[in-house]
Nucleic acid binder design. Sequence first.
DNA 1: CGTAAATCCGGCAGATGCGCCGGATTTCGA
DNA 2: TCGAAATCCGGCGCATCTGCCGGATTTACG
Lengths: 249, 249
Amino acid sequence: MNRRDRYSGDLELFELLEKLGELTDATGIPELLGRLLDIYGLKTVAYLGSGVTAQPGQSPYLAVTYSNEWVDHYKAQRFVDIDPTVQIGMRRMLPIDWDEFDRADEDVRRLFGEAKEFGLGRRGISLPVHGQHGDRALVSITSDASDRDWRYLRLHYMRDFQMLALHMHQAILRLEGKTVEQARLSPRERECLLWVAEGKTAWETAVILGLSEHTVRCYLESARHKLGAANNTHAVNKAGKASLLTQLP
Amino acid sequence: MNRRDRYSGDLELFELLEKLGELTDATGIPELLGRLLDIYGLKTVAYLGSGVTAQPGQSPYLAVTYSNEWVDHYKAQRFVDIDPTVQIGMRRMLPIDWDEFDRADEDVRRLFGEAKEFGLGRRGISLPVHGQHGDRALVSITSDASDRDWRYLRLHYMRDFQMLALHMHQAILRLEGKTVEQARLSPRERECLLWVAEGKTAWETAVILGLSEHTVRCYLESARHKLGAANNTHAVNKAGKASLLTQLP
DNA sequence: CGTAAATCCGGCAGATGCGCCGGATTTCGA
DNA sequence: TCGAAATCCGGCGCATCTGCCGGATTTACG
């Protein structure tokens, strides 16, 4: 909790954000994370991205300041299945303090106990990030700060962390080259797809929209073509991730 | 740009966040937005939510400090179709300054020109918010601040706005009672659904997973039941919105 | 120690999806 | 003024999905 007591310390956040925006390849990430630790007096920081790469069923994207030993141990123990930061944090919208997790659970206690041995801080926060295309990430920081410093950190720098998490995810997306070719669906196509996504059959959709069943099938067909989808299910999934189904234009 | 020059001004942000968390019904929102304008010296603030309510094809959720005249005029002119804050802002992850929009476009110039007449500020920022279930929102603020003050506001309070936008969306979701019953899918069920979502047939999925086609159909059937879905397409849509398809657990 | 859930397998009838054939008018921008 | 795209409509054959019948073992939890 140094250097940041003056308001002008904001400059260091801007510096980080700028560097994130200028990253050209993943090799610069570790240094950036290290700088982040420095600035905020943290013990560790970790980025876990899901749906960041193009292929489905891919393993998640990881960028951490943890030791390799901890990462290996974590994987070997399949901690991801019980880790509340992942299990709960990934399913939230707002950040969560690790203190809120259930320490009565023996598995959880073991996880955090071993984490500490491997160099993670006693306290932590996880910040979920939601991207536009179903991609999401979890940025977790840990610290060994005193109660007082930790409270201070949470109060005054949560915003910074929120912003850093967002920009970090954006940077990773840019580096991973996940570009989504935004197919443009016509209003009718979108409308038909929307109702099909709700489980309606072509006939039901036709009734809802006051069209003939055949017309609905035609719209669905062209929607599939535009989206490069193999079937309606695929099309709904693609359109959903491209947020083409959330009404509006 | 008053009252906030001291660092302790943070208290006002916390006060807003706390009030947002304590909202019990929508009637308290206008007062809260007004308080926000006061604190940051803004001209207007607007919340536009999409996918916030349960029904599909619903009109978006709106909470603004604009005059009713502007809202009516906006709707009558169908400005939503050309409004870059919606068209572009809603499709981004990071905030965008209204200065970045194409002022060469005649429609856009007309929109912002008329907006100013109806009491919106000259400058603006829109902050996209992405929820967990395909829901999203756009929080837009405007100001008539001088160039210098505006730059200052952007630099130092973007974090606050980001956080306010997030918490505002969370509060609206809570008020609108959009609760997603988290069905728990077994690993196999999720896996099958994942590949079906990628456009694979049951047979293809069976080959990929090394199962019999019939077994895949069984998993899909139970997945549909658990999700309360009418068919695979519906199931994929529901599971996707519940982020059950983003591998990991 | 029973119960529940997860993991697997087979078959069948009817509904639905899918692709491709044909046709039409209107609208909008180049 | 020409063409492209959006809006509509009908039919046919085959592939796939869906629901429901039956069976099995293993694992975990109380």
